[in-house]
Amino acid sequence: MKLAVMINEGPYQHQASDSAYQFVAAALEKGHEIFRVFFYHDGVNNGTRLAFPPQDDRNVQMRWGELAEKHGLDLVLCVAAAQRRGIADEGEASRNGKDANNIAPGYRISGLGQLIEAGIQADRLVVFGD
């Protein structure tokens, strides 16, 4: 089955990203296709590379990137949500006059159309949030 996933809450504060990660890993294991993982609301905070959680805990942000690299996942952060919350790639930072970017490896920033397209293209869009 072709699946798309939406994550609406930030890391650690909420389990949404953890549950979505377990779901995606299990779905890939079973041979399903993950069309896209779309991060919205505070979910875009999953896309920072500047987090450094305690070493005896899981690294929610980085392990998405690792899974993406291994399976060619498309991890998309909503641009409007990311701008509000200070998540930027190089282009976003320079276009908006910021002195740094903070996007984590494996993620990209794009528009809400990517979410609608995922809803249209996938057999199921699975939402993780409150």
Partner: peptide, 19 residues
């Protein structure tokens, strides 16, 4: 919370997709 405002943003963008 921001859910209502950001929901409306999805609806407006989504409207362009003729669904």
């Amino acid at each position: 919370t921001i859910y209502a405002l950001e929901s409306l943003e999805v609806v407006l963008i989504g409207a362009a997709f003729d669904q």
